[in-house]
Amino acid sequence: MAPKNKNPNGENVVPEVQQKKTQALILKSSDGEEFSISKSAAGLSVAIKNMMEDDCAGGVIPLPLVDGGTLARVITYLNKHAEDGASDEDKRKFDEEFLSGMEVDVLCDVALAGNYLDIRGLFHDVCQRIVNGMKNKSVEWVRKTFRIESDFTAEEEEQIKKEYAWAWEGVDSDAD
């Protein structure tokens, strides 16, 4: 079992932009990892953009709520979306692949980071991705996918179904 906070491409991820001589700044994760990112890519995060405008911390922006593994993922996303030649179609494909491999825990981390850093497109897509695991799925399936442990008795479940009978209307009980 690999530690959850590993960067997706192994340790010491160095974003490509670092090699370029473009204006860069440093993002520092909650666990002290530092990542270089171009200003144009970082600016896609409204929160970072605001911090850049306030010119805090002289080029190093601390992000105490995002761990290194998640930050590396977010930076991959930002770099793709700031890429000059990338068409909308490219980005769409990237987004799909980017999220499709993620486990529920990682999706939660990325959702939190996307919300905190105010990266609307990313946050929207992650929420959508999470929700896709719930839509038209049986209760059992959803519990299994998200590792939610039920603490209801069968009786209580029946009671809830009865109370919101309209929400269960037309739901195939075996859907998964």
Binding site: M134, K135, N136, V139, V142, R143, F146, I148, E149, S150, D151, F152, E157, I160, K161, Y164, W166, A167, W168, E169, V171
Partner: peptide
Amino acid sequence: RDAVRTSILS
């Protein structure tokens, strides 16, 4: 309706 149905999860 999907959102309301999450009430049965736990």
